[in-house]
Amino acid sequence: MQNLGINVFLKGRNMIRLFEGLMVTARIALIAIIIGSLLGIVLGVVWTSKSKWIRSVCRIYLEMFRIIPILVWLFIMYFGVTTVLNIDLSGEFVSIIVFTLWGAAEMGDIVRGALESLPKHQIESGKAIGLSFWGLYRYILIPQAVRRMLPGAINLATRMVKTTSLVVLIGVIDVIKVGQQIIETSRIEVPTASFWVYGFLFILYFVICYPLSVLSRRLENKWNG
């Protein structure tokens, strides 16, 4: 029993620390996904504007987050912007901001794609029965677009959850970092700790991401049926 790797979880506060780390990961991901999605829907609607200016501003915003790695964004915000503006922001706060902005950018593109893929006669029919701008979106476009964007949106959400592992580079201790600390600390007594800890991390991420997949499948089934 002495060398059984699973014992690393029972030592000291290890289990509690892992869950504390999980809460950090979940908090960053959840807040970013929720606010990012809301902003993204607004951005997506604005994006379908006919104005060239608005379209290109949206485009630049998206490309900035698509081209520049998230890691670099975290560095810019945490080390660069705070120094330039001489303010002190916690690593977790900066992470939430960066992930929210990223989520909004990608979500905006997904919403735009979904809206533009709707047949033109939907808009024209809506206008023909006298719907206002808001009515048009509220009753015709958004309900249809949501179905089309769902797979992409769920994909984005799970990607965001997994990418939170980068926040450790700006000093935020997330669940993966706690796992690595435990592995390193018990490297000598429990050489197999890495297997157990990473195995456990796999289960934790699965527990966060799988419900999202289930949710999306249920919604799709419901709407199709």
């Binding site: 030592k11 000291g12 506060r13 290890n14 620390r17 201790i173 970092k177 690595q180 600390q181 435990i182 592995i183 390193e184 600390t185 018990s186 490297r187 000598i188």
Partner: peptide, 14 residues
Amino acid sequence: FSDKHPFGYVDENG
């Protein structure tokens, strides 16, 4: 460091 045993690490009590 928080994961470079034995120079800088976090023990099981955090």
